[in-house]
Nucleic acid binder design. Structure first.
Lengths: 195, 195
DNA sequence: TATACCAATCAACATAGTGTTGAGTGGAAT
DNA sequence: ATTCCACTCAACACTATGTTGATTGGTATA
């Protein structure tokens, strides 16, 4: 499988990504040039184009990889079970797992959701949460008893609220534990339920 | 005051802004060049630099003008009074006014909060709402009786929720009336109050 | 051992965008 | 008549982009 050529290419891609992220901490995506990246990574500029179409493609691949990885962590998060546990007053271990993942990759999330960057990831993450959480809950018909607010607004506002919680956490340099964040999350779940 | 020279300069700036916005509908901010703008506006490229430092400055000035204008509309929105009316089950005319403003400038908001653009405006608008709504409500001590969630998280998640509502409205091509949106807004206010 | 393979390098190219400058145009104000 | 001023025009040096063709130096294979 992993031939020495593939390993070499992978190592180069990792080096590119690593230095790209470093540059994104310093400045706006728009102001990071391919030249900047390849000089930082100490590779030939031509080599960059062997792996990526352009810097947009690079950004896209990193974002996609991050969300794909998050997906695996969320697979074990079962909304119905989560609610059940919340009703018992316990913090769902599953919810904790989500925040643990964000904590683990805080560097990425801080950059991609940060001040100077592209709005793409924000929208992408929002859509991700809609697909993984809210829509599943919506399908549970008994879940929303008195939906006086149209479903798409309900789901947009709930996911945005969730994202707002994450953004604040990242801004606070992750001062709270994943457990504490999960506790807040549970409260949001209850709110959505009773709206 | 408004000499013919100032009028001329203002007209040129408006022409620049108008064509810039048009280009932002077609493509990403990053991919819009000063050349694109000046060619569309049929002015000399040098003229652009008589008015703006660069395209970032142009974006910043438009955003700032939009928020300054929104500020005037929100000045007449008094949160305490708003809540009082909501308790009476009536829709606050003030809240309606906010959504009316967004409706009036939907084109701008759709572009600046849209898929391909800069995250700056999103953050800016969020901060704006925090400053204008939430923090004022927070200062009303009796307002939050049982704040089991830290205030910064509460405010981040409430404003994000509010923004989520607006974003969905814009995505829905403003299918709802400002009155209907205000009704949802009132529900959020009640939610925040009872959290 | 020869040779085919392959990631990465290097240098050069055409193209396009940036920000600045200095000279010039034409209508408006004094 | 002359000054003022927004705008035009052409040119400049500079940086970034994406592509190409030739080359290097390890690795695998017949």
């Amino acid at each position: 499988m992993a031939s020495i050529y593939e390993e070499m290419a992978e190592k180069t891609k990792e080096k590119i990504q690593q230095h790209f992220l470093q540059l994104l901490k310093e400045k706006n995506f728009m102001k990071v040039s391919v030249r900047d990246i390849t000089e930082a990574a100490e590779i030939n500029r031509g080599t960059f184009y062997l792996h990526y179409l352009d810097k947009y493609d690079l950004l896209d691949q990193i974002e996609a990889g991050l969300l794909e990885d998050l997906d695996k962590h969320l697979e074990q998060l079962k909304p119905d079970l989560l609610l059940e546990e919340a009703e018992k007053g316990r913090i769902s271990m599953n919810a904790v797992e989500v925040f643990r993942y964000i904590q683990l990759n805080a560097e990425y999330f801080q950059i991609f959701l940060g001040e100077n960057n592209h709005i793409g990831f924000h929208k992408r993450l929002k859509r991700f949460f809609v697909d993984h959480f809210v829509e599943k809950m919506m399908k549970n018909e008994s879940f929303f008893k008195s939906a006086s607010v149209p479903q798409d607004y309900l789901s947009s506002f709930a996911t945005s609220a969730f994202l707002g919680l994450i953004e604040q956490w990242l801004e606070n340099e992750l001062a709270e534990t994943p457990e504490e964040m999960a506790e807040m999350y549970i409260q949001i779940i209850f709110f959505i339920r009773n709206l």
